[in-house]
């Protein structure tokens, strides 16, 4: 089992706890050990980098410094945390002036020389699609998902991932390996407006409903994401389209880790689905998966 220093992120302890739980369960079942970074703190997310540059580097740096002491590469599940941790790591390694300033603030060395990886990439590297396919005990045959990467995961601060940032493929390939009939669409990396969800709901309702319309047009019966803000925003804001759109969309949204757990036949999977604001259970029952 390969071990990683795991950065859970704030959402995974509250609004997206089904993401945190399913991520740990799926990883363990696939032989990936996630050791929580002790006493980790918030990465500062969008509010950090939008308002104070030094803060936006120093907040993730505290966690990177603890991860350095663990001597492991870092595993992240939240797209925003991933974006901030990777972005801060790059700046600290490239800008010695900044690194020594942050070192003074933390009293610890903030230069993290390991890798910051998203769990999706870790599964590709450590497990691979062939092995994943062999592990599937309950193929997601009747499911027709579109994969939705959102902005932060596809474009981590100008840092290219191992995937194509305009048309990423990894989540599509992973869902196919789980047996799903993945639909193609061109909205994979469009932003859902999550950071404006409370402040400019008018803008967000438009963006979210455009995504649901596009997913339905592509023939999808659900949306799969790797970002807790995307999921919360898509679930929260689609019903508000009722007034301006013909019909409210009721397309379930899943975390990719929930579907891995379901396809692997893990026991915990059932308890996460009732937690969704848009109940995915009728869809899963209809597909013979519950």
């Amino acid at each position: 089992m390969r071990e990683f220093a795991y950065f859970p992120g704030c959402s995974q302890g509250s609004s997206a706890h089904e993401y945190g739980e399913s991520a740990v369960a799926a990883a363990e079942a696939l032989g990936i050990g996630l050791r929580e970074i002790p006493d980790w703190s918030c990465c500062g997310a969008s509010s950090g980098h939008m308002t104070n540059h030094l803060l936006s580097v120093a907040l993730p740096a505290r966690n990177l410094a603890i991860a350095s002491e663990m001597g492991l590469d870092v595993a992240v599940v939240c797209a925003a945390c991933y974006n901030r941790l990777r972005g801060a790591q790059r700046e600290l390694l490239e800008d010695e002036g900044l690194a020594s300033k942050v070192e003074g603030m933390l009293g610890k060395d903030p230069r993290f020389r390991g890798e910051v990886l998203h769990l999706l990439d870790i599964i590709f590297r450590e497990v691979g699609l062939e092995e994943l396919k062999e592990r599937v005990s309950r193929p997601l045959k009747e499911l027709k998902p579109v994969s939705y990467y959102g902005c932060l995961m596809a474009r981590p601060r100008g840092l290219m991932t191992e995937d194509d940032y305009e048309n990423p493929q990894r989540m599509d390939r992973l869902l196919e390996a789980l047996g799903a009939e993945v639909r193609g669409w061109s909205y994979k990396t469009d932003c859902c407006g999550g950071s404006l969800s409370l402040t400019r709901t008018d803008i967000v309702v438009k963006l979210v409903n455009r995504l649901f319309e596009a997913a339905e047009e592509a023939g999808a019966d659900c949306i799969v994401t790797a970002c807790p803000m995307c999921l919360a925003n898509l679930e929260m804001r689609q019903a508000e389209g009722t007034l301006s759109y013909k019909a409210p969309h009721q397309l379930p949204v899943f975390f990719f880790t929930e579907l891995i757990a379901l396809a692997l036949g893990l026991d915990g999977a059932r308890k996460w689905f009732p937690k969704h604001l848009i109940d995915p259970q009728p869809l899963l029952r209809g597909a013979g998966l519950l």
Binding site: H17, D39, L54, R62, L106, H276, L277
Partner: peptide, 27 residues
Amino acid sequence: MLAKGKIKLIPQMVKGRREVRRIFKEA
């Protein structure tokens, strides 16, 4: 969200709050 257990009423506290506060102060 409360009914679905999506809101945790008790905040998670980091032990190293002083370190975090120092980051804010210096930034």
